[in-house]
Computed example of a mutant assay.
Amino acid sequence: MAIEGSLTSVDIQDVVQLLNINKSTGSLLIDNKETKGIVFFSNGEICDAQVHSLSGLGAAYVLLGQSSGLFRFHNENHNRSRVIHKTIHDLVLEAARRKDTIQNIRTRISHNNIIYLPLVDVRIPSIAKKYSPLEKKMFSLLDGVSDIQQMIDKVGEGEFETLHTIYELEQRGDLKRVNIYKLLEVHPRKSLFKSPKEVVISEKIMDDWDRESALYSGVDIVEIHTQKLLYGQVKSIVKEQIPDNHILIPKGIMQQFQISENDRVLVKPIPLSAY
């Protein structure tokens, strides 16, 4: 049995229940702009799933929580072993619960340009024993540079586990949210002599970063994110006389990042410890 359609007109729950009733064996492909993955069925039961770098139960919850995009089921004898042992009913209910939880957390963590710093040191055994392995892993990856999306990628447990853990740690006062991204207006940096290699930011921006954490004190590397989704790290210097919402960028770097005068870019500091 081959079925296909759009998840905007057919609920994913109805699709998997139909495959369960028909005791289907094969792969259910789910594809939208943000999520593309496969749910594997064996005799009507979900035996495995894969989405991006996530597999197994976590991947199944992600895919069963989709409400948009296209789906297509292929009848085929795959060689996937059964690593998921929950019923379709339980999987669908848990996927719905996780989707609701993520939506609630996203009212607090509303975008991915958020960076956290740990307020506890889990290298101390008496402190470490209070935390789960995932929480300790989270602390070790919070480097003052990685934003939410980068943390999701690094942790490797999917959006739900990462966001839920960060949210719980923040609620308990174990994490500090740092406001280091700056939205700055681009202006060319001009020089009468040799072509400069550094971007220029204001002294106030450097002071703001220093107040957020000593981790950012004296940084001379910044990361630039453009509206065209290009990003990269460049050397920076500080000058007192430029406006606080400006960044002066040499012409060569402007060409490299495909940015023009008066464009706006997101800029964050890269701590010395991250080099």
Rank of each mutant, 00 (worst) to 15 (best):
residue 116 Y to S: 06
residue 136 K to R: 15
residue 116 Y to K: 01
residue 27 S to H: 01
residue 31 D to C: 05
residue 202 S to F: 02
residue 194 K to F: 10
residue 241 Q to L: 05
residue 215 L to R: 12
residue 19 L to P: 09
residue 76 E to M: 13
residue 255 Q to T: 04
residue 11 D to A: 14
residue 181 Y to A: 06
residue 231 Y to G: 09
residue 112 N to P: 00
residue 3 I to L: 14
residue 118 P to G: 05
residue 138 M to T: 15
residue 13 Q to D: 12
residue 66 Q to C: 13
residue 46 I to R: 09
residue 208 D to T: 06
residue 71 F to N: 05
residue 146 S to Y: 06
residue 176 K to A: 11
residue 179 N to V: 01
residue 64 L to G: 03
residue 94 E to L: 15
residue 152 I to M: 08
residue 24 S to R: 03
residue 70 L to C: 06
residue 11 D to T: 09
residue 145 V to F: 14
residue 55 S to T: 15
residue 67 S to P: 00
residue 56 G to C: 09
residue 42 S to D: 04
residue 15 V to H: 05
residue 200 V to H: 07
residue 11 D to E: 14
residue 115 I to M: 03
residue 196 P to Q: 11
residue 263 D to L: 04
residue 117 L to M: 02
residue 179 N to M: 01
residue 5 G to R: 08
residue 95 A to S: 15
residue 100 D to K: 14
residue 251 K to N: 07
residue 195 S to H: 05
residue 217 S to Q: 13
residue 74 H to P: 00
residue 230 L to A: 11
residue 123 R to T: 14
residue 18 L to R: 05
residue 192 L to M: 03
residue 30 I to F: 08
residue 203 E to Y: 12
residue 193 F to H: 08
residue 66 Q to W: 02
residue 66 Q to N: 05
residue 14 D to S: 15
residue 270 I to L: 14
residue 129 K to A: 01
residue 274 A to S: 15
residue 210 D to M: 12
residue 12 I to V: 15
residue 192 L to R: 11
residue 258 Q to R: 14
residue 115 I to D: 03
residue 100 D to G: 01
residue 244 D to G: 05
residue 61 Y to C: 10
residue 6 S to F: 09
residue 172 R to Y: 02
residue 246 H to W: 08
residue 127 I to E: 12
residue 230 L to R: 15
residue 244 D to V: 07
residue 196 P to A: 11
residue 2 A to M: 07
residue 41 F to L: 11
residue 71 F to C: 08
residue 222 V to E: 04
residue 126 S to F: 13
residue 4 E to Y: 09
residue 269 P to E: 06
residue 231 Y to V: 00
residue 201 I to F: 04
residue 168 E to C: 03
residue 229 L to C: 06
residue 60 A to G: 03
residue 82 R to W: 09
residue 36 K to E: 08
residue 49 A to F: 11
residue 214 A to S: 14
residue 175 L to P: 08
residue 260 S to D: 03
residue 94 E to K: 14
residue 128 A to W: 00
residue 260 S to Y: 06
residue 103 Q to D: 14
residue 243 P to M: 01
residue 52 H to Y: 10
residue 176 K to E: 07
residue 248 L to D: 00
residue 39 V to Q: 01
residue 208 D to C: 01
residue 229 L to I: 11
residue 123 R to K: 10
residue 37 G to R: 03
residue 197 K to E: 13
residue 153 D to A: 13
residue 226 T to Q: 12
residue 83 V to T: 15
residue 74 H to Q: 12
residue 169 L to C: 08
residue 72 R to D: 02
residue 217 S to A: 13
residue 108 R to L: 03
residue 131 Y to K: 02
residue 166 I to C: 08
residue 176 K to F: 09
residue 265 V to A: 07
residue 123 R to G: 08
residue 102 I to H: 03
residue 69 G to V: 10
residue 217 S to F: 07
residue 62 V to L: 09
residue 3 I to F: 02
residue 49 A to N: 09
residue 79 N to M: 10
